[in-house]
Amino acid sequence: MFEARITQGAVLKKLVEALKELVTEGNFDVSSTGLQLQAMDSSHVCLVSLALREDGFEHFRCDRNMAMGIHFQNLSKILKCAGNEDTITLKAEDNADQLTLMFESSNQDRISDFDLKLMSIESEHLGIPDQEYSAEIKMPSSEYQRIVRDLTSIGDTVLISATKEGIKFSTSGDVGTANVTLRHNTTPEKPEEQTIIDLKEPVALTFALRYLNNFAKATPLAPVVKLSLTKDLPIVVEYQIGELGAVKFYLAPKIDD
């Protein structure tokens, strides 16, 4: 059987809210090491990779590897019934066709359970190579959210260029043009307010803003976001979810015809 208990149920709620518009359905692959999800959006332009570690949960048991097919809008409907302070336990029998979600209030005076019907989803796993990136930028997740939201109101695509001067986001549209540059800045005392640019070589890539804006729905999960860029390769937008794991979004670049 599979059983995973998380005291901070709000994390699970935020996670599903971050994914549900990008990814309609996907398999929760559970094993003794934790829970993983790899899923593409419907247009196959971006990929979500979620990895939650077994030791990030208060309790985790998985006797057999299983792929649990999840419809994210449906999971979201159920998680909306959990309180923000609730502890959430996920449970499934081996080869089950449903996932049980149990919500316990913090003072244990309210317990509810919901069964989510599981789906059978054929999904191919893409091989994401481990690699060095030309530029890695850590910045406040709220800053990333603001930049992509602001630029989405001006244009459809963004040119992201990382140089020793900083990281620049440029777009243009019917209204005009916009450029936002962030410089390396380690002045703030709190690490989550710093902008750290680790540059091996300058790089510039163009991406659809719609997707970058969608990734920002993960902002409530983490105070910091990391962007990784290499010429002619997908950007990685990564949010560390405390000690529990991470969610990474990969978006294919736009390339000259």
């Binding site: 593409m40 247009s43 196959h44 332009v45 971006c46 990929l47 191919e124 893409l126 091989g127 994401i128 190579p129 695509t157 163009t206 659809a208 390769l233 997908p234 990969y250 978006l251 294919a252 670049p253 736009k254 390339i255 000259d256 015809d257």
Partner: peptide, 13 residues
């Protein structure tokens, strides 16, 4: 500009 699919980079369709 042309939008590539993610599978073009990581294998698959």
């Amino acid at each position: 500009m042309k939008q590539k699919s993610i599978g073009a980079f990581f294998g698959g369709a």
